[in-house]
Design a protein around this nucleic acid. Structure first.
Length: 415
DNA sequence: TCTGGGGTCCTAGGACCC
DNA sequence: TCTGGGGTCCTAGGACCC
């Protein structure tokens, strides 16, 4: 069936940092880090010049500065990231409609139907790279191979600013010397467990029986890894996929969990989550709250309701109840993060679906108070659609903790 | 060195049903 | 009174991805 290397994986290099260097020529060729909110926080992205010093995304700013004293910190231009990445995706779409965007700066393409128009997959990859560089001004790496997994590994090998094509005849020899950490699904824990058995390269992995990997890493993870190591990857390009959950979180530093803090933070998060759900005519039955304590240990509490919900005030109330359950088990501990996630999603047809509470309860949509919630949410949604998010807020959620909205929106996935 | 924000999938035990 | 086997749903935790 599929003989040639018709899957492409395209990945913008050090995306946020490259955009900053594009916008400000004085930053080019220099080690820079893009920061989140004002002041310290973590490194969101590092330029290749900074990576040479060991600076990585997710690293605390203080640590990054120690590794690289000449590091320049810049505030992110989040709106520009979205615009430029969308421009790049438009270029990818110019060679095939079979584009699967997996994050803001990364996509798979199936070019099997495009070769008669645009030439070989290798030629298409080269053409796309040049076009992105010329029209958008950003470096992008591309891997081309017979499967998604091979294409993704190839693009990682191609970085920075390169193109690697894996000949289907030479897949095994291409993968064999590479470290297992490049495999999809091998993170720090799996890497350590494998290393304890002397398994360090993908070649080592291919020589390990599936049953042994399943014992080591669990049934599903072991079986998947064994198949991938033998280049068996059945995954197709999926141009659209429904989200299975919607969430929001806020890091809080180190705070005492007062009723005011918990109420305001969860109110803000519920407002974000509810607003996104309603904007896409969706709602969810399961509400999950995550509480992270000052020592980074975290617990979750969840509740599955009889019917899907999306009203901000309902989500806030359920979340508060769950949060206090979790906090009651860790009496007196300071907290460092609160999160809300809604799953078990369904289409939100009508107001009736907000029947999460017995009739007569003020929260029921059949009651005057329940209808009022819907009217309130929908009028606020309408105002925001015309004038922007900040135009109107619930009193209790007016103070927005944590990262700026523009940064949050970058990470959001389509519903 | 105590670290952002948004997601997916898997595991395991218990409740409950037939 | 004790016992089978299979299935679904819910909850909590955890690894992993970008």
């Amino acid at each position: 069936m599929s003989g040639g290397p018709t899957i492409l994986h395209a990945d913008l290099d050090a995306f946020y940092a490259s955009v900053e260097q594009l916008l400000d020529p004085a930053l080019r060729g220099r080690p820079i880090a893009v920061g989140g909110s004002a002041g310290g926080g973590v490194v969101l992205a590092a330029s290749y010049e900074a990576k040479a010093f060991g600076v990585r995304g997710g690293m605390p700013g203080r640590q990054a500065r120690q590794l690289c004293p000449r590091l320049t910190f810049v505030r992110g231009h989040f709106g520009e990231y979205q615009r430029l990445a969308d421009d790049v995706m438009d270029i990818l779409h110019s060679v095939t409609p079979a584009v699967e965007r997996i994050s803001i700066d990364e996509a798979f393409l199936d070019v099997s139907g495009s070769t008669h128009l645009f030439g070989s997959p290798a030629g298409i990859g080269a053409r796309l790279r040049h076009q992105v560089r010329r029209e958008v001004g950003l470096p992008i790496s591309i891997g081309a191979a017979r499967t998604k997994h091979l294409a993704k590994v190839a693009s990682q090998v191609a970085k920075p600013d390169g193109l690697v094509v894996v000949d289907p005849e030479r897949e095994r020899e291409f993968l064999a010397p590479l470290p297992v950490g490049l495999m999809w699904g091998v993170g720090p824990v799996a890497e350590r467990r494998l290393a304890e058995r002397g398994i360090r390269t993908i070649g080592d992995l291919a020589g390990t029986p599936s049953a042994a990997l399943e014992r080591l890493l669990g049934h599903a993870a072991g079986a998947k890894l064994a198949a991938l190591a033998l280049n068996e990857d059945p995954r197709r390009i999926a141009t659209s996929r429904r989200a299975r959950s919607v969430g929001a979180q806020s890091a809080l530093g180190r705070r005492r969990p007062t009723p005011e803090l918990v109420h305001q933070t969860l109110g803000h998060l519920a407002d974000r989550v509810g607003g996104r759900l309603r904007a896409h005519a969706r709602a969810g039955r399961t509400v999950t709250v995550r509480v992270r304590f000052a020592g980074m240990a975290a617990v979750t509490r969840s509740l599955t309701l009889p019917a899907p919900v999306s009203a901000t005030l309902t989500l806030t109330e359920v979340a508060e109840q769950l949060a206090w359950q979790a906090l009651a088990d860790h009496d007196g501990a300071d907290i460092s993060l609160l999160a809300i996630s809604v799953s078990n999603l369904a289409a939100q047809q009508h107001v009736q679906l907000e029947l999460t509470v017995p009739p007569g309860d003020p929260r029921s949509p059949g009651s005057p108070a329940g209808s009022a919630r819907w009217a309130l949410d929908h009028s606020m949604d309408a105002v925001r659609a015309r004038f922007g998010r900040a135009a109107v807020t619930y009193l209790s959620t007016a103070r927005a903790p944590g990262a700026p909205d523009a940064f949050r929106e970058l990470a959001e996935r389509d519903l």
